[in-house]
Design a protein around this nucleic acid. Structure first.
Lengths: 322, 322
DNA sequence: TTGTAAGCGTTATCAT
DNA sequence: ATGATAACGCTTACAA
């Protein structure tokens, strides 16, 4: 029996007579035969796989996004390739390289710059931008940040804090940039001037701790700190403890992301909840749509976020509620 | 000029005369030509990619393992395919499917059972087992759990707790099983009988909270709880707060993993630090070695863990130290 | 319904 | 040093 018949059985059993189909199945079982993905992909011109590129992978934030992405992808029988660029010099090459192993690619945050997005589009690789400003005609998925950052900052103003600092790097991350913008909006609305400009800071706990210990050592220290994410906030909490500053009485602290630990910190952290799973999931879905429908007009999604008030901002907060 | 020449230029420029090489480069630039990975892989018989399979992806634990794995892999120019099985019925098919997209595969924890490992070996797919009992002749990488669990439990005995519970599912996870075994060892060494058998519980915070709120509602409640990981411990902390039980005075709690949040909890969590990055990294290295050297005898690695005593166990702990 | 054969885009072996 | 050409393992007209 011919190889074509075997192929037919694999793709659509109905194309082949029941008797022959049986023979094929027996032979397959006997020889423990497995069709090669490579051969199939080459002939079919499809990888049945997509890639997702992160700037980094540490922390619960990324893992939740991956979770959502993987779930949606494997529900569609698409394999997931993952890459972290870590600000490496080779990032561009690696991303381009990844691009020709997949049918489409998701770019998260500040991984590569706009030129690369355009290069990918020239190669006809569908691209979805995740938590990253729009570029070219790629799709995008983001969580609303700016207005919630304004709400958060305004909330602090209502507590009457006077020296409100912002810990995070607007130039290093689009997310931080939006939160900083919302922070500024709140100042404008309240006719205030920012106490000082954004204090650059990475997204990890150590970064927050380092920045905060310097900041809190100054003579004129802040009475509130808005952190670009929860891990930075944890670092600030540690730095405050180290200087015997009570939170929120001596210093209010807020985070961003509402990681699982946030509600268990001392004190429970006021923060902003992001739909991290949905971010990953929607990115996968949009990408899939682009690939299968060959849609060409970009589609942009903005997912809502939610202010979660606990007690690190100065509110009294009954921990039993949650 | 012929296609063979172009191929030669791509693989080893020295094989071709400088003049022709130049012509090739110009043509490549002009036509924006990219060699196809698929073609290359098919001819070469290699994917230059490996897969890693997780039972789940939530929490900081997995993300650290992925981080280590991705780092080591991409340093060797190997792409990483990721799959989460989520105890799905289709897991076996998905893993087998993944297997023929890659040159080798890492299986984490209780993702698929031994038969699948053997099936993979029959197909000549190199396999590394991560945080999972040995099977077939696959390599393995694990973190030492049992003796550290004994040390942890013994430490609790020294605080003189009488009713020590274990929250975790020895039947559901090899990791939990080892920790439970170490827990039992400590009892034997101290000539104690376990207060009660292991209380099955998933690895997420909600699982811990749920199990603990039932447990703490009982008339005869434990005075110490050993949790199979930090997230369960966070759930227990929440349940204790909800019942106005003071930790560690009314109830001691310990975790496992030393996630970044552990030191910031109220109270700071006594736990066990695992070399999560190294787990991922070593798995990648072993797999790579298997693939390139065609080594056939299995190699097994046991990475050390470290007891981290903070204050949730009843020790006085100066938070400024860390 | 099934077989034949021409791709798919490389690499690798021969010749030249 | 370079060009032909046969794999690699599939899919898919087209023929039978």
């Amino acid at each position: 029996m011919s190889i074509a018949t075997v192929s037919r059985v694999h793709r659509d059993a109905k194309l082949v007579a029941p008797a022959t189909r049986e023979r094929v199945h027996r032979a397959v079982a006997e020889l423990d035969y497995r069709p090669s993905r490579l051969g199939r992909s080459l002939a079919h011109g499809q990888h049945d796989a997509t890639g997702i590129v992160f700037p980094d992978l540490s922390g619960p934030y990324y893992s939740a996004v991956i979770l959502g992405y993987e779930e949606a992808s494997s529900a569609e029988d698409q394999s997931v390739l993952i890459l972290a660029t870590h600000r490496r010099a080779a990032s561009t090459r690696q991303v381009l390289d990844l691009a020709d192993r997949v049918d489409g690619i998701v770019l998260f945050g500040r991984t590569v710059d706009d030129e690369v997005v355009e290069a990918l589009e020239r190669r006809r690789v569908p691209v979805v931008l995740l938590a990253r400003p729009i570029a070219g005609s790629a799709d995008s998925v983001r969580a609303e940040s700016r207005s919630t950052a304004t709400a958060l900052t305004t909330h602090l103003f209502e507590h009457d804090y006077q020296r409100v600092a912002f810990l995070g790097d607007p130039h290093g991350s689009p997310d931080a940039a939006e939160r900083w913008d919302g922070f500024l909006d709140a100042h404008r609305a309240d006719r205030r001037r920012p106490w000082r400009s954004a204090i650059p800071c990475g997204f990890r706990e150590e970064d927050g701790r380092g920045a905060a210990s310097e900041l809190l050592a100054e003579a004129n220290r802040p009475d509130a700190i808005v952190c670009a994410n929860d891990e930075i906030a944890m670092g600030v909490l540690a730095a405050a403890r180290a200087r015997d500053l009570a939170v929120p009485d001596d210093l209010a602290v807020t985070g961003w992301d509402d990681i699982p630990a946030a509600r268990h910190l001392a004190p429970p952290l006021t923060t902003v909840r992001q739909p991290m799973l949905d971010l990953g999931r929607r990115a996968a879905e949009l990408l899939r749509d682009r690939i299968t429908t060959h849609r060409t007009e970009p589609q942009h999604e903005l997912l809502p976020t939610e202010l979660v008030v606990r007690s690190s901002c100065g509110c009294s907060h009954d921990t039993k509620e949650e």
